[in-house]
Amino acid sequence: MAAAAAAGAGPEMVRGQVFDVGPRYTNLSYIGEGAYGMVCSAYDNVNKVRVAIKKISPFEHQTYCQRTLREIKILLRFRHENIIGINDIIRAPTIEQMKDVYIVQDLMETDLYKLLKTQHLSNDHICYFLYQILRGLKYIHSANVLHRDLKPSNLLLNTTCDLKICDFGLARVADPDHDHTGFLTEYVATRWYRAPEIMLNSKGYTKSIDIWSVGCILAEMLSNRPIFPGKHYLDQLNHILGILGSPSQEDLNCIINLKARNYLLSLPHKNKVPWNRLFPNADSKALDLLDKMLTFNPHKRIEVEQALAHPYLEQYYDPSDEPIAEAPFKFDMELDDLPKEKLKELIFEETARFQPGYRS
């Protein structure tokens, strides 16, 4: 834990890192770190609560700039109880001085990944967590956004079992017609939660990839272990087919990539493993919904509104309290091709509203 900075004593240090967030945020305490930044909790002297502050230093890398800009653009436009918001952003007053960006968010005690390492969940908890994931996802999908990296560590939890989806750095506007060349190379989302079509096709992607990830998360809540822990690309596919069985001819016809289709045709026939054999203690309604989410063919996979209306979630289902976005989200430009200098300018502009004396 960093010592509390005395008023006016300059930035606090946390594990050798400068955290320049005073005077409003003090009493910093280390939480963890990701690929390009550290997260601390801090005391907000204005709202009198502890908050989470993520320090991001992305400006050396085009990919990190892209992810940072995506996350900020999306989260500043989203407003939903099951999606983490941005409360404040701290950065230098000029673009030349801006080396880091500090993002202030609600402090959540833990995440689903940490929880599943230590606790076996009751059916009631599984049901409530799944409902909140789908409630947040309904809003995301209504904005025409794909999260693309749903996994237990991106689901934040607090002691009252509130759940918030975080990390929109890989999110995209849904565009089933656009052929994202190089899709697989830039697709760094965790393999275990990846839909089979991501490994088999490169053309376009749809909201059904997020539903697949939610199915993987439900299976993990039922058993405290990942359902498809593939060691590499082909191993991942083999794990999936080992449980779902061989795809039907109709399902194979959806695979545009001939090499991928021929690979699947070359494999020995596998039978589907019954879900109640894998999860003998699970609620039968939970397994019915799991089956509809972990469907090989993305066109037959359940959609988020149908999933919310499934009998497993009937005690929570309330369409009048499951809000959607006001308007579909649009990125003005494809960020993939922009140089990091341009992305830095866009991050600077996007964060201006939090600067003292800002006038829109």
Rank of each mutant, 00 (worst) to 15 (best):
A42N: 12
I74V: 02
L265H: 13
P23Y: 15
D318N: 00
L237W: 11
N271K: 04
S248G: 11
A219E: 00
K340A: 09
I227F: 00
L264Q: 00
E197K: 00
P196A: 02
P298G: 12
N123Y: 00
Y43T: 14
T351P: 06
A35W: 07
T26Y: 11
V46E: 12
I103S: 05
S246G: 09
I95V: 08
Q315R: 08
E334M: 14
N45S: 08
T351K: 10
H120T: 12
E81M: 11
I324Q: 13
V173Y: 09
C161S: 00
L200I: 04
W192V: 02
E314I: 15
N257L: 07
E186R: 04
A42R: 05
H180F: 04
P11N: 07
D88E: 01
D88N: 01
L184A: 01
L244W: 04
I74Y: 08
G182S: 05
K285R: 04
N87L: 14
G22E: 02
N281H: 07
P356S: 02
K55I: 01
L69V: 08
A7F: 09
S320T: 03
V14A: 04
T63N: 11
L346H: 09
P328C: 11
F59P: 13
I255K: 10
Y64M: 10
E250D: 04
W212A: 03
R24W: 15
I31G: 14
L137E: 03
N257S: 03
E81S: 10
W275L: 00
Y312S: 09
V173K: 02
G10Q: 08
H232G: 11
P280K: 06
M98D: 07
K272T: 12
H80F: 13
G230K: 11
T190Q: 03
N271F: 14
M293N: 06
A9C: 15
G10L: 04
I240E: 07
V145R: 05
N276D: 03
D162S: 14
P247M: 09
T118V: 11
F19L: 00
D235E: 00
E186F: 10
K300M: 00
L313F: 12
L115S: 15
R67A: 14
P328N: 11
D177S: 08
P11F: 15
D177T: 11
M199D: 03
P196H: 00
D106R: 13
T110Y: 08
K151R: 01
V49G: 15
Y139I: 07
H310G: 05
R15K: 02
S29Q: 14
N276C: 12
V101R: 04
Q66A: 06
Q17I: 09
Y358M: 08
G182K: 07
K117L: 10
A52I: 02
R67W: 05
N201L: 10
V273K: 14
K259M: 00
I86G: 15
F19R: 03
A3V: 05
N297D: 08
H141M: 09
P339G: 09
L343E: 04
E197V: 01
Q132I: 05
S223L: 04
D175T: 09
A309F: 14
M98C: 11
M108W: 12
A171Q: 03
C65T: 12
N262P: 08
F329R: 11
L241S: 03
Y263R: 06
S41Y: 00
R277N: 13
P328L: 02
H310N: 00
C216I: 05
L163D: 06
I240Y: 08
L289W: 04
F168Q: 03
D251L: 03
I217C: 12
E186P: 08
D20A: 08
V51A: 14
P274N: 13
I86P: 15
V273F: 12
R301T: 03
Y312Q: 02
I217T: 09
A4N: 15
L130V: 12
